Amino acid sequence: MIQIVIGIIFVLAGLLNAYPAIGMLGAKQLNSLYGLDFTEANLLTLMQHRAVMLGLIGLFLIVAAFRRELQPAGFTLGFASMLSFVVFARVQGDPSPWISRVATADIAGSALLAVALVLYWLRA
């Protein structure tokens, strides 16, 4: 039962991380995610690459839901991905409502992963 709960949490965290992958489709999708203008080509390239990387992290977390041996790496990637964004958003001082929304989602995702980590340790 514990492994099922851990798996569900990994899938949820994976979907949360993978959702921004829609940004790889272009500036319009990135604007819908972050509320910013991505008409400058270099910024668009960087953000599309970020979208791909988040999609890969999300995919890894979903796979880790079904592969116990990948879960330690999944915890590391998930926490690093989500908490680094939260830290960067807070360090900047006054994030926009869009960025605050992303940070809040990442805090929720990190809290879920923390529950899974506790369950993982208890199961061992």
Rank of each mutant, 00 (worst) to 15 (best):
10 F>I: 09
33 L>W: 00
82 M>I: 01
90 R>A: 13
24 M>V: 15
51 A>N: 06
100 S>H: 05
5 V>S: 09
23 G>I: 06
8 I>R: 01
6 I>E: 02
18 A>L: 08
56 L>G: 08
110 S>R: 04
55 G>C: 05
73 A>N: 13
49 H>T: 11
9 I>K: 08
81 S>T: 15
81 S>C: 09
62 I>F: 04
10 F>Q: 02
39 T>A: 15
65 A>S: 08
28 K>R: 12
89 A>W: 04
50 R>Y: 02
59 L>V: 15
97 P>A: 01
110 S>V: 03
96 S>R: 02
77 L>K: 12
123 R>W: 10
84 S>H: 00
89 A>N: 11
49 H>G: 00
119 L>C: 08
57 I>C: 03
96 S>Y: 02
92 Q>V: 15
74 G>M: 11
16 L>M: 14
87 V>M: 10
40 E>D: 15
70 L>W: 14
80 A>R: 00
112 L>M: 12
14 G>H: 08
11 V>L: 11
23 G>Y: 06
45 T>L: 15
50 R>E: 03
35 G>S: 14
63 V>E: 06
22 I>N: 02
34 Y>V: 09
118 V>C: 07
56 L>A: 13
12 L>R: 10
50 R>L: 00
68 R>D: 14
93 G>E: 11
54 L>Q: 14
14 G>Q: 12
12 L>D: 01
43 L>R: 08
67 R>D: 12
77 L>H: 02
57 I>T: 11
81 S>F: 08
49 H>M: 10
96 S>L: 00
27 A>E: 13
60 F>G: 10
99 I>G: 00
2 I>W: 08
84 S>Q: 10
56 L>V: 13
65 A>K: 01
25 L>H: 10
58 G>K: 01
70 L>S: 01
71 Q>K: 14
63 V>T: 07
75 F>G: 10
117 L>W: 09
90 R>K: 07
30 L>Y: 04
44 L>M: 04
93 G>K: 03
29 Q>R: 15
51 A>D: 02
26 G>L: 13
48 Q>N: 07
105 A>Q: 09
7 G>Q: 04
97 P>W: 09
53 M>A: 15
55 G>I: 02
22 I>Y: 03
115 V>N: 03
2 I>N: 11
91 V>Q: 05
89 A>I: 02
74 G>K: 12
58 G>I: 01
10 F>N: 05
9 I>N: 06
118 V>T: 06
88 F>V: 14
119 L>H: 12
114 A>F: 14
17 N>L: 12
101 R>I: 01
22 I>R: 11
24 M>A: 15
72 P>Y: 05
63 V>I: 15
20 P>H: 09
74 G>N: 10
49 H>K: 14
86 V>C: 08
106 D>W: 14
27 A>N: 11
